[in-house]
Design a binder for these strands. Structure first.
Lengths: 337, 337
DNA sequence: GTGAAAGCGCTAACAT
DNA sequence: ATGTTAGCGCTTTCAC
């Protein structure tokens, strides 16, 4: 290829990286030769010589979960203009797989890693960082700021949902929640109780928890009966995610309970179909795309600034009010006057 | 690191690649040194020396679309045991971005590329292949078998949906479809008409097409009125995707039309929430995960077998019958006897 | 303005 | 069983 243009390989390199210092005639000749031979420079050799390889590792729990893919979309958006490429690894929550992939990413010398850790223990992730690879945790904080992270305030999310219901005339809220071993579930529960307290209510009375083993629509549907059977009466339900809420809507419908009149329902996550349901589902939205963008930016910052100090970027969730929780009891009573 | 173990770098290489030929004492010493220094071999240097880099490029239209992410999950599943890593690129259907990413993947010397092309013209994709990079098209066939591809038979899918309705006692089916410039839309339409013909019906009468500008739930909802206004009466609707069908269910509900009794509804794609709706939505399922797996396998085959001949792996869609299209008119009449 | 040459980290062939 | 060395494709001085 260099011989085709009758130049040295050094000149070819200059055409690619320093076009201005090459005589335009030579440059054109080299460009033509590149074109005709289909020459493509090798990132590997470039990198070996001391350059960058413009790739970022992204380790998530599940490629087919919209929560993660929206974050990936955000990260991709933030990185593509800088010529980065994403190396995507889905661990399916397997710690073995996570370690496997982190190892591969390190061998590939990615310039940074965005990771949603599969386990509580962050030893392996921290080890990466201590070996000099910029690492940012997604949807998870690092104890003692030992790493950068982007998170969403789940306590606040739980509070938003409960406060909306309680401040809107509902008196007793059933919280259909998953196991407290899931941090998100525990946090949202705390938030719900905090909302009650801040409104001057007794959390033990205002929030009644209904535990389900998994956050699926089936369990939401089954929980509908338990909500109605609750002694003392309940006039609103908040669910730990939208799948539960969807099942709950179906279950309540099957039991002849009208939503939102007899029972308000609120979900969490604001997945795509929440707005499409009838009644459209009120839900707590997490800024997923923004999480990805912020994660990517922290990564860039960390890799550019040697004096970088780790920090946590914390996002606020947002309540999206829709039909499933409006037209509360109060307006109804007004109507009947 | 080599000096820490007091061996030459050649021996370190052997410990990594050919452990059996190294004396076990030395091997342990080297392993210990590797451990204590946190040494990780460089894929780039390995690759430069003539090795593989164990990465596969995946170019899709949209990372946050479940259709693509399920395929990615399939590809990841098929490749992870071989130590591959996926380089994921989302083009948002932009041809510019597609070219950008294909170029980067080529510089990275990925060992193969799975791609859903953003445009009809395949020149750039074919160019890759002709430069020796194994390339497989996803959800798109290559004219004249010039490339490997994995596809789903959309004509058959349209036929399945229409045949189900027409053979089940429905007489006239409205087909709410997107623009025919989208291949999938055109194919599904052909299939629906074929179903009518095969049942001895006049396609122009049995299938009435209702065109919408985009495959969204809003347009589905708007189309409900047009379906009812159709002269000659219509007792079933098939939609070009599940979003349209969801909107249609909502629209019909709003107009007081009962599904499935007065109107059967069928969607396409069988997205996650189709089964969760009430009535649960009958839909045509595409084997997305399997598409990804098959694509990955074609890639491996192509890169291993030099005498490889391109082929198309074509999948059959599957009709998933649920409540929205059952309890057809016929059983209803029976009940009233 | 261009060429020659060293060296990035690794592997494999050869020498010891 | 281990060390030595050439060279993969590139970038970057340093000569010319």
């Amino acid at each position: 290829m260099a011989e085709l243009a009758a130049v040295s390989i050094g000149t070819v390199s200059n055409v690619l990286n320093n076009p201005s210092i090459v005589a335009s005639a030579t440059r054109d000749r080299v460009l033509a030769a590149i074109e005709s031979t289909g020459f493509v420079r090798s990132t590997a050799a470039h990198q070996l010589r001391g350059g960058r390889n413009r790739s970022i590792g992204v380790v998530i729990l599940d490629v087919s979960n919209p929560f993660f893919t929206e974050m990936v979309r955000g990260a991709e958006h933030a990185l593509r203009d800088d010529g980065f490429v994403l190396v995507l690894c889905s661990t399916d929550e397997s710690v073995t797989r996570e370690r496997h992939y982190l190892g591969l990413l390190e061998e590939h010398r990615v310039e940074g890693i965005l990771v949603t850790p599969a386990e509580r223990d962050l030893t392996h992730v921290s080890a990466l960082a201590s070996r000099g690879i910029p690492t940012v945790l997604l949807d998870r904080a690092a104890p003692g700021r030992s790493l950068c992270s982007v998170t969403v305030d789940d306590v606040r999310g739980g509070e938003l949902a409960a406060a909306h219901l309680l401040a809107d005339g509902r008196e007793r809220v059933a919280f259909v929640n998953g196991p407290p071993s899931i941090r998100q579930c525990a946090d949202r529960r705390r938030g719900a109780r905090r909302a009650a307290r801040r409104l001057g209510l007794d959390p033990d009375r205002a929030i009644v928890e209904i535990s389900v083993p998994a956050l699926t629509d089936e369990h939401g549907e089954l929980a509908a009966r338990r909500v109605l059977e609750r002694a003392g009466g309940v006039d609103a339900v908040m669910c730990a995610n939208d799948l539960l809420a969807l099942g709950m809507l179906r279950g309540l419908d099957g039991l002849g309970v009208s939503v939102p009149d007899a029972m308000a329902v609120v979900g969490y996550d604001d997945v795509a179909f929440a707005a499409m349901l009838s009644p459209a589902l009120t839900s707590v939205r997490q800024p997923k795309f923004e999480l990805g963008v912020a994660g990517a930016e922290l990564l860039l910052e960390e890799s550019r600034d040697p004096r970088h100090v780790h920090r946590e970027v914390r996002f606020e969730p947002e309540l999206v009010v829709r039909a499933s929780s409006t037209a509360a009891k109060v307006p109804k009573i007004r109507r009947s006057r």
